[in-house]
Simulated scan of single mutants.
Amino acid sequence: MATNNKITQLFNIEYPLIQAGMIWASGWKLASAVSNAGGLGIIGSGSMYPDVLREHIQKCKKATDKPFAVNVPMLYPEIDKIMEIIIEEDVKIVFTSAGNPKTWTKHLQEHGIKVVHVVSSVKFAMKSEEAGVDAVVAEGFEAGGHNGRDETTTFTLIPMVKEKISIPLIAAGGIATGRGMLAAMVLGADAVQVGSRFVATPEASSHKNFKEMVVKAKEGDTVLTLKELAPVRLLKNKFYEDVQNLYAKAPSKEELIELLGRARAKKGMFEGDLEEGELEIGQISGLIHDIKPAAEIVKEMISEFESAKKEVAQL
């Protein structure tokens, strides 16, 4: 790996490989495993009460002496408490998403915290740079979970963002292999963020049923839906069929909210209800065929990245 990489220097990590902060999957076990393997592990605070987040940060510190981050969706109802805990617990890196980067960036940076904002468009990448963030994650519509409305793919988004910003750029969406990592970096990314591949690990806190369904998924088994609320990429199941049946009746936003109900993602990804749960995963799940330790995934991706680089040099 190049020693002059902007992201490895920014975060003081070995590889430009970041594990996404995913709800119901990214607890301290996964984050510490990825950080210990040389990447950047992220605790996903979106599914945690403030006191639970504090516990995960403290356990992560005990499990690794390497840098790790916390991901904060800015729609979170108790965001003030979450940010307070992050500062109190001396977390050095925060990834913000689903909101205006201006709101918290300066405040966090004043406490010596590096701030990265997740975007799904060129416009928001530019706004993030204006807000003073240290880096951006540009996420294509292949990604799992909550997503951009424009359906811009990673392959087109990365070079378009690269053209307009000068701060470090992290690519996300549809990346689960060393070859995918190299492709993203050839397109202009300084690093990659990987979500779905790390769901299929023993360390991910998501339910075994969900992990097994991810491994069984094939091309075409995920769909981006519920755009009127917040676009989300889901595995097809009974809940997804219920959403489709409701769409056939041209529903109001209120009817969609009623069908979604509360804690639908927890039911699916954390409790393992594969019928009624919301099962968020990326399109690349069609390329994930086994559950294996996070450290092995990091090692394999870096090894494949290096061998693919040599192959490309011979083209």
Rank of each mutant, 00 (worst) to 15 (best):
S45L: 11
A294G: 03
F198R: 02
V298R: 00
K29R: 15
C60P: 11
G41H: 13
E89P: 10
E276D: 13
V161E: 04
Y15G: 06
N4G: 05
V72L: 14
I281S: 14
I297A: 07
P67K: 06
D273H: 10
L157Q: 04
S26K: 10
G261Y: 07
K127G: 05
M1S: 13
E139D: 09
E228W: 02
N5W: 06
C60Q: 11
L53N: 08
A37N: 12
N237M: 11
I85G: 05
S121D: 12
V34F: 08
K227D: 09
V133I: 04
K249R: 14
V194S: 01
T96K: 03
E241F: 01
T152Q: 01
P251G: 02
G99Q: 12
L75D: 15
A204H: 05
T177K: 08
T96N: 07
T153I: 09
G178C: 02
K127S: 14
G195A: 01
E142Q: 00
P16Y: 01
A230K: 14
N71K: 09
M74A: 06
T3S: 11
G220N: 05
I297F: 02
Y76K: 13
Y240S: 02
L182P: 00
L10F: 04
P159C: 10
M22D: 12
K292G: 02
I288L: 05
G173P: 10
L157M: 06
V72H: 04
L30K: 04
